[in-house]
């Protein structure tokens, strides 16, 4: 008798255990199902469920993050599309002026009826226009390769000395014509993570600016300083300078400084330079006192020892 009762109780306990576990698992699966439904519906309004200290809450929290990440990707793509659109409209606008002057002077030359002096003058203007277009085309090709990502920068550990030397030799002629002396303070060569060709291109742009905005018979200082994570390359000129309220704008595409009117340029050099440094995990800062000095500090990551 006692045995029968025990057996019955045992069976009952087993049955109840199975029933409750089944219910518990089902409840959890239902919760997971609800969370997944929200993900499918892109509904981030899982609200306070995610802010409790339970397993389901942690799951919900991760689900919300997944939705946000996909939304972030979408908005990033949209932004990039806008950048490209504005770039195309900016660029076509910038090319219009030199192109129309080339067209106009060509027409005048074709019509004839002009003195030889006028003819010479018109040819010179056409030459100027085509040079400007050529220069813009070159920058455009570089930019599109960088921005579209057709060319991936490949930062590798390389000595920076050679890279800086490459840039200096590129601008050497331009500096000599203005009798500007480029002085490099002695530094030990260091291995920095960078793509030599593109980095040299960026440094060249900074140096070209320094020469362009300096008076003749001046100098440009280059120095290097290693910090714990980054190494800083400083280029200082003693030219016209940049007012502090323009510091944040000068790296923007097509931006020309207020002081830069009358000097040839398209507002692409600094933009390109900062893009190149950013793509390598570095950055550029500017510091300047108008009329006294301008320093560009370029930061590249040190190689891990």
């Amino acid at each position: 008798m006692a045995l029968a009762v025990t057996v019955i109780i045992a069976i009952a306990v087993c049955f109840l255990t199975v029933l409750f576990s089944y219910r518990y698992i089902r409840k959890n699966f239902d919760s997971i199902d609800r969370v997944l439904d929200s993900v499918l519906a892109r509904n981030t309004d899982l609200s306070l469920e995610a802010a409790a200290d339970s397993r389901i809450s942690k799951l919900t929290h991760k689900a919300v993050k997944i939705i946000q990440m996909s939304e972030m990707d979408i908005s990033k793509i949209r932004q990039e599309k806008e950048i490209i659109q504005s770039f195309i409209s900016d660029m076509s606008h910038q090319m219009k002026t030199p192109l129309s002057s080339v067209a106009m002077y060509t027409d005048l030359l074709l019509e004839g009826n002009i003195t030889e002096a006028e003819g010479q003058e018109f040819l010179l203007r056409i030459k100027n226009g085509t040079e400007k277009l050529q220069w813009m085309m070159d920058s455009l090709v570089k930019m599109s390769r960088l921005e579209v990502g057709a060319i991936e920068l490949s930062p590798v550990p390389l000595g920076i000395k050679q890279t800086i030397a490459d840039s200096i030799s590129t601008v050497y002629g331009a500096a000599a014509r203005k009798n500007i002396f480029i002085h490099t303070a002695y530094f030990e060569d260091v291995l920095l993570l960078h793509d030599r060709k593109w980095t040299s291109e960026a440094i060249t742009n900074i140096l070209e600016n320094a020469i362009k905005y300096s008076l003749p018979d001046n100098k440009i200082d280059i120095s290097l300083e290693t910090l714990p994570i980054y190494t800083k390359i400083r280029i200082t000129d003693y030219g016209i300078g940049i007012a502090p309220d323009e510091w944040n704008s000068i790296f923007k595409r097509f931006y020309r400084g207020r002081n830069a009117k009358g000097v040839d340029g398209a507002g692409l050099g600094l933009y390109l330079a900062s893009l190149i440094f950013e793509k390598q995990g570095g950055y550029i800062l500017v510091d300047s006192k108008p009329g006294i000095y301008t320093t560009f500090s370029m930061f590249l990551q040190n190689c891990k020892k």
């Binding site: 990440m69 972030m72 300083e225 910090l227 714990p228 994570i229 980054y230 800083k232 995990g281 570095g282 950055y283 800062l285 500090s297 930061f299 990551q301």
Partner: peptide
């Protein structure tokens, strides 16, 4: 100043990397 520039570069680099 120098350490600030170093630390800020790190902040910017990691934020870009981890969105």
């Amino acid at each position: 100043t120098k350490t600030s520039q170093d630390v800020l570069g790190v902040l910017k680099m990691t934020s870009t990397k981890f969105h």
